[in-house]
Amino acid sequence: MGEKKKKIIKTIKIDADKCNGCRACEVACSAFHATPKYSSNNPARSRIRVIHEPLKDMFVPVYAGEYTAAECMGRDKYVLDGKEYDECALCRASCPSRDLFKEPDSGLPLKCDMCESDPTLTEPLCVQWCITDALVYEEREEEVEEEEEQEDLEIGLEALADKYGMEKLIETVARLSVAKKE
């Protein structure tokens, strides 16, 4: 058990009723996370995706959450307001069962990082670009149990290990480090 410690909880409040399906949030997110920053945009790389089915009146922005190596034991299906959403539609996981929240070319998982950057943004960029206020940023302080955050690097490596096998990964890293030295 870790110690109690103060932590800023960053929240994006999603008011799906206000969403107009413009996907500006996807544009902004993928541009922000491009290297170099803003040099490209591509919704397929965005860490927020909008469920956009106008004729079913479905407009729900969904943020990329944790990477998961294995898919769930079962599937979930939501019916809200009489509207039946696709299987797993509202789930935030980057998961082997689907190509959502993965880099289109490498398949590496994507996760919303609240636009962590230096200098920090006043608000995540998707929120700034959603001027219809479907996305609103809120911060509050909470006391939480301290817990080790899984580093980005670790998440990436774990995903690669799941994809290619641990052995292959180690081999490759070894080979690359030799190649680098030469």
Binding site: K37, S39, S40, A44
Partner: peptide
């Protein structure tokens, strides 16, 4: 259906302009 990047030549400048428009 497209999943590729669209690039701009001068990213910071371009985003500043976009923000002004917004």
């Amino acid at each position: 259906r497209g999943k590729k990047d669209i690039n701009v030549a001068r990213p910071e400048e371009f985003m500043t302009l976009c923000n002004e428009v917004l």
